[in-house]
Computed example of a mutant assay.
Amino acid sequence: METLKVSQITKKYGRQTILDDISLTIQPGKIYGLLGRNGAGKSTLLNLIVNRILPTNGTIKLGNDDINDNDAALTQFYLMSEVSLYPKHVTLKQ
């Protein structure tokens, strides 16, 4: 995997700012953790990195490639959340 670079990311929902001008670099071969209280923006940052949601401002790059709608870059990530993407009545077979 290449270096992941988050540059000046801001995420707003309406007038509420969730992340404000966040920048970080994640090097390959290292382990990182996100720590913070509930509502600090940890899940929002992860959802931005995997392109589930789009930033209000800023860029996220894997190597030199922007991850926005970049299938080749996005195959390097997997994010599982506690929220089910399927309705409760849907079976495995469906």
Rank of each mutant, 00 (worst) to 15 (best):
G33N: 08
A40G: 06
K61F: 02
L74W: 04
N47A: 07
L46Y: 05
I18A: 15
I9V: 15
P55H: 02
G14L: 14
I67C: 00
V90A: 09
I53G: 04
T3I: 15
P87K: 09
I18C: 11
G63Q: 06
Y78C: 15
P55R: 01
Y32V: 06
G41F: 06
N64R: 08
N70W: 05
L79K: 04
T25G: 00
I31C: 11
I9P: 02
Y86T: 14
H89P: 00
L85C: 05
L45F: 06
N70T: 02
F77R: 07
G63M: 10
I67S: 01
R52D: 09
T75G: 00
K61R: 14
D69E: 12
Q8G: 11
Q94Y: 12
D66N: 14
G63H: 05
Y32R: 03
L79A: 06
I22D: 01
D69L: 07
P28Y: 07
K61G: 02
N68M: 11
G58E: 09
K88S: 14
L35P: 03
P28T: 07
G29T: 06
S84E: 13
D21R: 07
N51S: 12
I9E: 04
L45A: 08
I18K: 00
R52K: 09
Q27G: 00
L92H: 04
T10M: 07
D65A: 14
V6H: 01
T10P: 04
N38S: 15
I9C: 05
T91R: 12
P55T: 04
L74S: 03
L48Y: 06
V6P: 02
T25K: 09
T3G: 02
A73W: 04
M80E: 13
E82V: 01
A73N: 05
G39D: 08
Y86A: 13
I18F: 08
D20G: 01
Y13S: 10
L4A: 08
L54F: 11
F77S: 11
L19V: 10
Q27R: 12
L35K: 02
T3Y: 03
P55G: 11
T75L: 06
G36H: 09
I53Y: 02
N68H: 11
G41W: 08
N47Q: 13
R15S: 15
K12D: 09
I26C: 14
Y13M: 11
